[in-house]
C-alpha cells in the first residue's frame, strides 16, 4: 500500500488502511506525519473517548464487548484499542482481549485493535493516542481504550480518556487494595462487575463509600453494577457514561481533560522524536565515563 492508497484508504474508511496506519505510526515510520496530518480534527473533537481499566480478569473485555453491542444497536460506529503488557524479557506480547469481542468480527463498523505496551518508558501515550485519533477520525465514537490498571504507564494512558471507568469484581481483594490509591482517583465510574458472584454487594457498598467521599470533595464519581457475561446493567452504565460526558462538555471539564491529554501526547511525541537523535549523540560521545551522567545529558541537550 503506497502513500496515496493509504491516505485515500483512510478517507474511505478502508479497514486495511486504518490498520496499516496504526502500525506505521506505532512503529515510528516516516509516513506517520502524513497520516496524522490528514486526520479529521472535528470528528476527533466530537468523539467520546472512553477509558476502561481495572485489575486482570475483572471483566473489562467482556464489558467492552457488551458496550459494543449496545452502541451497535444504535448504529454507532465504534473503535476499541485493547492494550496488553509486553513481556519484559522477550519484548513480545500475548494479545488476548479480542477473543471476547469476536462476535463483532464481521461487523465493518466495529474496529478492534490490540496493542502491546512494548515496555516503552515513554511513547505509549503517543502511540495509543494516535490510534485513538485514527479511529475517531474514521468515524468511531466512542473509542474505548481497554488497559489493565497496574502500572504507571497505564495510568498515563487512561488520562487520554474523556470518561474513565474502573472495572472491579469481587474476589480480587488484594488487587483492589493496591489500586485504591491511584486508580480510584482517576475513575469517573466505579463498575462493580460480576454482580452475580458472592461478595459483589459488599464491594458495591465499599465503592459507594468511596464515591461519596469523592463527591464530598466536589468530584462526580458514580457506581454501577453489571453482569457483563449476561449483559446486565449495560444500558445503565452507558447512560451514566453519556450523562457524565454531557456534564463534562458543558462544565468545561471535557476541554480541560482534552488539553491535559493533548499536552501529555505532545510531550510524549517530543521525547519520541528526540530519542533517535539523542541515542546517536550518546553513541558518538564515545566510551568515556568521565563526569556525572546528568551533567553530560545537559551538555548534549545544549547541542541540539
Amino acid at each position: 500500500m503506497n502513500r496515496e492508497d493509504l491516505l485515500q484508504g483512510l478517507k474511505g474508511r478502508d479497514p486495511r488502511a486504518i490498520a496499516r496506519a496504526i502500525s506505521l505510526v506505532e512503529d515510528g515510520d516516516p509516513l506517520a506525519d502524513a497520516i496524522l496530518g490528514s486526520l479529521d480534527e472535528s470528528r476527533i473533537e466530537q468523539a467520546l473517548v472512553l477509558g476502561m481499566t481495572g485489575p486482570p480478569g475483572a471483566g473489562k473485555s467482556t464489558l467492552t464487548d457488551q458496550i459494543i453491542a449496545g452502541y451497535r444497536a444504535r448504529s454507532q460506529r465504534i473503535g476499541v484499542i485493547a492494550i496488553d503488557p509486553s513481556s519484559a524479557i522477550s519484548g513480545g506480547a500475548f494479545l488476548g482481549d479480542r477473543i471476547r469481542m469476536m462476535r463483532h468480527a464481521l461487523d465493518s463498523d466495529v474496529i478492534v485493535r490490540s496493542m502491546a505496551t512494548r515496555g516503552r518508558l515513554g511513547g505509549l501515550c503517543a502511540a495509543a493516542g494516535a490510534a485513538v485519533r485514527i479511529l475517531a477520525s474514521s468515524g468511531c465514537s466512542p473509542v474505548i481504550i481497554e488497559t489493565v490498571g497496574v502500572g504507571q504507564s497505564e495510568m498515563d494512558i487512561i488520562r487520554l480518556a474523556d470518561v474513565t471507568t474502573l472495572v472491579l469484581a469481587p474476589g480480587l481483594g488484594d488487587d483492589i487494595q493496591a489500586m485504591k490509591a491511584g486508580l480510584l482517583e482517576v475513575a469517573d465510574i466505579l463498575v462493580v462487575n460480576k454482580a452475580d458472584c458472592v461478595g459483589a454487594e459488599t464491594l458495591a457498598m465499599d465503592m459507594e463509600a468511596v464515591a461519596r467521599e469523592s463527591r464530598d470533595k466536589g468530584g462526580s464519581t458514580e457506581v454501577c453494577m453489571t453482569v457483563a457475561s449476561e449483559g446486565r446493567g449495560i444500558a445503565e452504565l452507558m447512560q451514566t457514561v453519556e450523562a457524565l460526558e454531557k456534564q463534562y462538555r458543558q462544565g468545561g471539564e471535557h476541554a480541560r481533560r482534552r488539553q491535559h491529554a493533548y499536552d501529555l501526547e505532545v510531550l510524549d511525541w517530543a521525547l519520541e522524536l528526540l530519542r533517535p537523535e539523542l541515542l546517536e549523540k550518546i553513541a558518538k560521545s564515545g566510551s568515556n565515563r568521565t563526569g556525572d551522567p546528568r551533567l553530560k545529558a545537559a551538555g548534549i541537550l545544549r547541542q541540539i
Binding site: 522477550s90 506480547a93 479480542r98 471476547r100 469476536m102
Partner: peptide
C-alpha cells in the same frame, strides 16, 4: 510471545 512477537489469539 517469548520469541518477541506480538501474538493475537482469536479463541
Amino acid at each position: 510471545r517469548d520469541a518477541g512477537f506480538e501474538a493475537v489469539y482469536t479463541g
